[in-house]
């Protein structure tokens, strides 16, 4: 996971020890990528909550407001935001299911964990693609 050619400076205590927290110096295996994206998408979904509440409130308040929401959804920016959030949801959903499976000791070996990581990415992408095809176009 860590960069193999980083300098180890343990001999001189006065020198600053490398913390190696720069994400660009770390090569992430697919499991780590699923994991960090589980966090990122969780945060994105949390930040999107007020947007969801406002949209829901508008959609149930009156027929004209409902129409307004539908019209807003036709704009390309709205579609981009909704698809981004949809992917966030799907990834978080499938990665979460994967966590639950591992909690009951299913697919905990490295090879299986790598395989299920790929499955999470494929399912998340596929679900988003299906939504895009059925709704955007």
């Amino acid at each position: 996971m860590m960069n193999s050619n980083r300098k180890v400076q343990s001999t001189n205590p006065k020198k600053v020890r490398p913390k190696n927290l720069n994400l660009f110096t770390i090569r992430m295996p697919i499991n780590a990528l699923v994991s960090i994206l589980h966090r990122v998408t969780g945060c994105a979904l949390f930040l999107a909550l007020p947007l969801l509440l406002v949209t829901f409130q508008l959609s149930i308040s009156s027929a004209s407001k409902f129409q307004l929401v539908q019209d807003l959804m036709h704009s390309p920016i709205a579609k981009l935001i909704v698809l981004g959030l949809a992917w966030s949801f799907f990834h978080h959903f499938f990665a979460g299911i994967r966590h639950l499976a591992m909690d009951v000791h299913w697919a905990t070996t490295l090879i299986k964990a790598r395989y299920t990581s790929k499955v999470v990415f494929v399912l998340g992408g596929l679900a988003t693609l299906l939504l895009a095809i059925s709704w955007v176009f």
């Binding site: 966090r39 969780g42 945060c43 979904l45 949390f46 909550l49």
Partner: peptide
């Protein structure tokens, strides 16, 4: 559920 789930998640982050 969402409130509790989001609290624990964001707290850890």
């Amino acid at each position: 559920s969402l409130s509790s789930h989001a609290w624990l998640g964001v707290r850890d982050v």
